[in-house]
Simulated scan of single mutants.
Amino acid sequence: MLINKQIGFIGGGAMAESIIRGILHAELVMPSQIMVNDISCERLAYLNSTFAIATTPDSQEIIKQSDIVFLTVKPQVIANVIDTIAPLVPKTTIVVSVAAGVTIATLQSKLAEVPIIRVMPNTPVAVGEGISAMALGKYATKAISDPVAEVFASVGRVVTVSEDSMDAVTGLSGSGPAYAFVLIDALADAGVRVGLPRQTSILLAAQTLMGAAKMVLETNEHPAKLRDMVTSPGGTTIAGVHVLEQKGVRAALIDAVVAATERSREMGKR
Rank of each mutant, 00 (worst) to 15 (best):
156 G>D: 00
226 L>W: 03
209 L>E: 05
80 N>F: 08
169 V>C: 00
25 H>D: 11
218 E>K: 00
181 F>H: 08
264 S>R: 04
17 E>I: 08
39 I>H: 15
61 E>K: 13
224 A>G: 12
268 G>H: 04
107 L>M: 08
14 A>G: 08
133 A>T: 05
150 E>G: 01
238 I>G: 04
191 G>S: 04
203 L>V: 12
21 R>P: 04
27 E>M: 15
93 T>H: 04
33 Q>C: 11
55 T>E: 04
239 A>N: 10
66 S>F: 04
33 Q>R: 12
191 G>E: 08
201 S>Q: 04
40 S>G: 15
140 A>S: 12
14 A>H: 13
97 S>I: 00
123 T>S: 14
146 D>P: 01
20 I>Q: 05
67 D>T: 07
85 I>L: 05
224 A>S: 10
25 H>I: 15
81 V>I: 13
30 M>D: 11
249 V>W: 13
18 S>E: 07
2 L>K: 01
71 L>A: 07
6 Q>H: 15
132 S>I: 06
197 P>Y: 11
216 V>L: 12
73 V>Y: 03
78 I>E: 01
220 N>G: 08
99 A>R: 02
45 A>K: 15
200 T>Q: 11
63 I>M: 10
42 E>L: 09
234 G>M: 06
207 Q>M: 10
2 L>R: 03
234 G>R: 04
192 V>R: 14
1 M>Q: 14
192 V>Y: 11
166 M>K: 02
53 I>A: 05
174 G>K: 01
23 I>D: 09
248 G>V: 11
163 E>L: 00
83 D>I: 10
130 G>S: 06
204 L>V: 10
47 L>P: 02
264 S>M: 08
226 L>A: 03
43 R>P: 05
26 A>P: 09
12 G>K: 05
16 A>L: 07
164 D>K: 10
268 G>W: 06
134 M>G: 03
97 S>Y: 00
225 K>D: 09
200 T>S: 15
215 M>W: 06
66 S>W: 01
58 D>W: 05
105 A>D: 13
119 V>A: 15
187 L>V: 00
172 L>M: 08
152 F>D: 00
135 A>P: 01
76 Q>M: 07
50 T>W: 02
237 T>Y: 06
214 K>Y: 11
154 S>C: 11
20 I>T: 12
25 H>R: 12
105 A>M: 09
26 A>M: 12
79 A>T: 13
250 R>P: 05
186 A>K: 07
93 T>N: 03
31 P>N: 11
241 V>K: 05
88 L>A: 15
67 D>P: 05
262 E>W: 05
19 I>S: 04
213 A>M: 06
141 T>P: 03
105 A>T: 13
139 Y>S: 15
244 L>F: 13
94 I>N: 00
